[in-house]
Amino acid sequence: MNIIETENLTRRFGRNEAVHGLNLSVPQGSVLALLGPNGAGKSTTIKLLMNLLEPTSGTARVLGVDSRQLGEKEKAQIGYVSENQQLPLWMTVRQFLDYCRPFYPTWDRALEATLLKQFALPEDRKLKHLSRGMTMKAALLSSLAYRPNLLVLDEPFSGLDPLVRDEFIRGVLEVSALGEWTVLVSSHDIEEVERLADRVAVLEAGRLKFNEPTDVLLARYRRMTVTLGESEARLDGVPETWIEMERAGRVVRWVDCAFDAAKSEAECRARFGDAACVAQGMSLREIFLTLARTSRGAAAEVAS
């Protein structure tokens, strides 16, 4: 069952199309990292899902309900943390939690106490007097304490120092381990969500590039290196799945984004003969950067 499903979801701001025909699904219990460079449409997508914005066309269903019809019942099952969210900064942490609690029938006071301790939040301090990291942790606490079925994190790590970021991620991981939660986290930096995500979706210029499980993605991408012997290599007409092709002296490098051990080996032999061919695994960050560079290059080509 998909907790989030979109169908041709589109949002325009004047002539600018922030999200274009998005078809995205997030299975229940998964942790999906929605990645993309700044301006890719991640936040707009999340705002459409949360009914903060209305789609220009297409539909989005969240928890089985049209996003435009999200009511109190559904929102009581959704946790939302965003870097841009305006919290009632005049409240103390305690007042903020006390204010939020009655709206959620499933609020777990024991979990609230545990998280309060884990995040080391000063209860009597006003939110406006907290550091940015502390404020985000307070927001996260207020979105976790009722054990939401869906947790949506929109760029939650921006501006957080590594230590706070780590605490934040640990908090989400620990709590998500307590139940069948679905998490949607957007970020422009894969490193931030690498530990969290079991699925990755990449948005670019409002379009979905792919949406697949992390392990499949990691298995699919390889950095290939061939050290050529005496014979010349054929570098023309390479498969489309070989990207970022480059040659430095006798060394040829590229990224294979449809790596299959036997098939890739055979293609290498066909082109480079008996030259030494090495396939190196890539991190999510490397894959993401490769994709970003490739897309930028393609966009520049189209523009020229």
Binding site: K47, M50, L52, L53, G71, E72, K73, E74, K75, A76, I78, Y80, S82, N84, Q85, Q86, L87, P88, C100, F103, Y104, A139
Partner: peptide, 21 residues
Amino acid sequence: QEDALTGTESYWLTRPIGRGR
């Protein structure tokens, strides 16, 4: 405006608080 109706950043918008309420 403490719980602003304009924009997308007010925290109440994502809480189970109906507009009628």
